[in-house]
Design a protein around this nucleic acid. Structure first.
Lengths: 150, 150
DNA sequence: AATAATAGTTCACGTGTAGAACAGTTTCAC
DNA sequence: GTGAAACTGTTCTACACGTGAACTATTATT
């Protein structure tokens, strides 16, 4: 354990709590009825992945597959995504956005940009770059071991 | 809007998604039945605040007061906190941890340290310091405007 | 004294999560 | 080939957390 680990972790958790909860609250407000912030993240992952499956999503958001089924069902009922079975391996179900889904996602993405971008003006460009690079490295490290069943 | 804002925000959101979900998953695993990660954050806020009220918690976690009531009820039923009415202003209810609550919180805090601290070894001390300082500044900015009603 | 504002609760409803049981499809060992 | 094992996704039940509106009780205002 590093010398200052305890203090760092406490400071990190306090900041993390504020930032994530505040961003979430703002996203809830602007997305409104149309979309939850979790649904937005799922659409984002579907958008960024050829042949996206439930298993992939479950690992990406570190959650059981049954949770993914629930979210996907709601997005399906809302007409935002479609399920397609792979003809070669009929166990696999690929998830793709419908035109409506793409439209909702694109609008939400712009709204998110508008919510977050004002904060960037309080920081120097190279500090932002360093901060994000570090965050990405942390994300990479955390994604590595992977492994969560059901 | 800054020149690179869009790219930065996309990168931030992608990293943020991975890090928060992974940390949450790990906390779910180690806390087990005893405590949810949201309950842990509430206990943390109660621990760090003299005369903690529901209104304070609602603002701190950017959530309606009725959500706080629900969480507090569960912590109360589990014997982790106590409610005390202010005798001067009987509308106010102060929240304090019981001995049992303190014990659970303290254990959970240690477990959280153990989950997060290994990642620190992958970074230079001064990078960690800069990263956290920046995160704290962001948290400060986001807390400012405040304001969320029930 | 009547009216406003404030603090907290209750209720009904939607969403996200876990975990166990299940169905349908490969894949593998023999 | 055939039977067992592994894998993908779904269903079901139970619970935590979020909202917003309506409510109670208390204090402040005018």
């Amino acid at each position: 354990m590093k010398k200052d680990a305890e203090e760092w972790i406490n400071r990190y958790v306090d900041a993390y709590m504020v930032v994530t909860r505040q961003i979430n609250a703002r996203l809830r407000d602007i997305f409104g009825e149309g979309l939850t912030s979790d649904q937005f993240l799922i659409l984002r992952l579907i958008a960024g992945q050829e042949k996206c499956t439930s298993t992939y999503l479950a690992e990406a958001v570190a959650v059981g597959k049954s949770s993914i089924t629930a979210i996907i069902n709601r997005l399906d009922e809302a007409g935002m995504i479609e399920r397609t079975r792979d003809e070669n391996d009929r166990r696999q179900v690929y998830l793709t956005m419908t035109e409506h889904g793409k439209s909702v996602y694109s609008t939400s993405e712009k709204q998110m940009q508008e919510v977050i971008s004002p904060y960037l003006f309080h920081f120097e460009d190279h500090d932002i770059e360093r901060f994000i690079t570090m965050f990405e490295k942390l994300a990479f490290l955390m994604q590595e071991p992977g492994g969560r069943n059901n």
